[in-house]
Design a protein around this nucleic acid. Structure first.
Lengths: 343, 343
DNA sequence: CTGTTAGCGCATTCAG
DNA sequence: CTGAATGCGCTAACAG
């Protein structure tokens, strides 16, 4: 590895001090324009690249935002990361991405790793297994700004007030359910994720509310909980078919299982939406696109990611009071995409 | 931000020198076990976290692998990143992810940024606009190891020998085409990406080869080129419908356009696969899953990502000769998933 | 406006 | 086996 040029190399050649060069390079007003010019010219000529490692060490800022998501390859998260990257790049931050694989253990390890790397802030969506924030204690102690998004802590006040960015899950779920009811559905089977996870909790609440509003009794045997793996969608569909009477509609609080349920039902000769109407949360544009029979709730990870970065850079750069008085919640709007009505 | 414990804090409390502590912490054989033990104990007690920034600066290694992909949110790339993250984490590396947005300009900027950050190596899939490697010159000069994957340079020898990891696009494309031919298809319309991109070039070659092998004439008016946006799939489908005679089959070298073409054709009353058979490259499991009429070529980004990391860490840690004598190509196997035959 | 001085936290000589 | 000394490249007081 060839030795790279440093500010000292520049300084020597120009008979200046390295501190002046440093200032000039960063456009300090303490340096006169002419000096800046000659420094910059030489920098370009010698192909000088500032060494971030050194400047970070010195200024005790890593210029890096840590990001933890359950799985990078899930579409909602990869779009969130895409938005995070875009916005962070704009603001001059790097991002350090980790995946928890939806495991509490990995999430802890990730936090540890980010701590080693002295990230300036953390943007995180919690794993499916996370029930408390005990593994965040060091982050809290070091006062690292944290922004939770999508899957956020449900009762964090016991630790400290926090910032959350969420989708309007309850409201949109209410709307989606109401949409089914308006089409004459009464028996609506529901496939939920773990109730300890904010989004599934909220979606279920919206469903309950809509039924209650329409004075439709809640049938507990129509509600299933799972960890939302592909096979859970199939299991759910099987259970549906075992009911004495088919439901009017199926509502899946998750996109993967919505599709696998649908596929299984179709393979069993059920016509959708003629026999059973279906609705599903969808962050997969492809799936939504390729199956126009599915009414979907679309949520944009990209936007959420951008907002998260804006928020965290505000915190990092002290444009916002770090010591929050209470939980701060930012809510993004989802869209209900109704397809079958147009056919 | 509370001050964190350093090796000096440990050293002082134990009446040792910081250098000894440094060695002990990293398990140097130069330190006796007992010393290591007491150092480690105190480190845990005081919750010591090594400052990577400092150690990186000192050792002139960032412990970071740079990754550039066109778009994080495209499924093939997010799965590749997922594999990269997993493998890099295992090996103790961080990853620094950038997206080129399929633009040459951004790709250059990304490279610059990674250079600033002194990444130890780079894993990259080229943008749609990239025709040459002129923007890599500094990386080459600094002898940063580089591994190209998926969309790789087609003629890089003018710069220097390089390492590429690719899918067996030509072979699998040959197989896919042959599969259509075996089903009696002769007029097979083809939707290609830019010919300057390795994968599209290879896929088209496989298609040509299969036709030639079966002595089927190549009809140039059945071959379309585009930049593979969603709308291009629709445009392509429109052109298909304008032909005097419908083709027997449609082959899309890209997954997004395969789906949008299919959707448009279906909306026009074309039955698939009865009227027209279809085949598409697919890295979207959801799309493949939700449309069982599409024969797909599946390629695993995860595996490719892992291999890329193995390769680059070998290079970084000098387990492999840096000065390559010639291009090195690693080929991964794709899978042809045939669905319609089973119905 | 510019130079001097002094580290950031760690790793690596070189002595003992 | 351990300690003392040095510096990675850059920034930030403090002087001038």
């Amino acid at each position: 590895m060839k030795k790279r040029t440093t500010i000292h190399d520049l300084a020597k050649q120009l008979s200046l001090d390295s501190s002046t060069v440093s200032r000039a390079l960063r456009g300090s007003p303490l340096v006169k324009q002419k000096t800046k010019d000659i420094v910059n010219d030489l920098a370009i000529k010698l192909n000088y690249k500032p060494n971030r490692l050194a400047s970070n060490l010195r200024s005790n800022k890593s210029n890096t935002i840590g990001v933890i998501v359950p799985r990078i390859s899930r579409h909602f998260f990869s779009s969130a990361i895409s938005g995070i990257e875009e916005e962070a790049y704009k603001k001059g931050y790097n991002i350090l991405i980790c995946q928890s694989q939806d495991k509490f253990k990995y999430e802890s390890k990730n936090i540890d790793n980010l701590l080693h790397n002295r990230v300036d802030g953390l943007i995180i969506s919690l794993s499916l297994e996370t029930r408390d924030l005990s593994h965040f204690s060091e982050l809290f102690e070091s006062e690292t700004p944290i922004v939770f998004f999508d899957r956020v802590p449900m009762n964090a006040l016991e630790y400290r007030p926090i910032i959350k960015i969420v989708n309007d899950d309850e409201a949109i779920s209410y709307n989606a359910t109401t949409h089914l009811i308006n089409q004459g559905c009464e028996r609506i089977a529901y496939h939920s994720g773990p109730d300890s996870i904010s989004i599934y909790n909220a979606r279920l609440k919206g469903y309950y509310k809509a039924l209650k509003k329409a004075s439709i009794p809640i049938l507990k045997n129509m509600i299933f909980y799972s960890n939302l793996m592909l096979k859970d969608g199939v299991d759910f569909a099987r259970k549906i078919l075992e009911l004495k009477k088919l439901p009017d509609a199926i509502y899946s609080a998750n996109d993967t299982t919505a599709l696998s349920s649908m596929q299984y039902l179709k393979s069993q000769g059920i016509r959708i939406p003629q026999d059973i109407k279906m609705i599903g949360f969808s962050d997969e544009p492809a799936s939504a696109m390729s199956d126009p029979t599915l009414t979907t709730v679309d949520q944009s990870g990209v936007e959420m990611g951008k907002v998260a970065v804006k928020k965290i850079t505000d915190l990092i750069e002290n444009r916002e009071e770090m010591q929050l008085q209470s939980n701060q919640i930012i809510t993004m709007n989802s869209t209900l995409i109704i397809r079958e009505s147009s056919r």
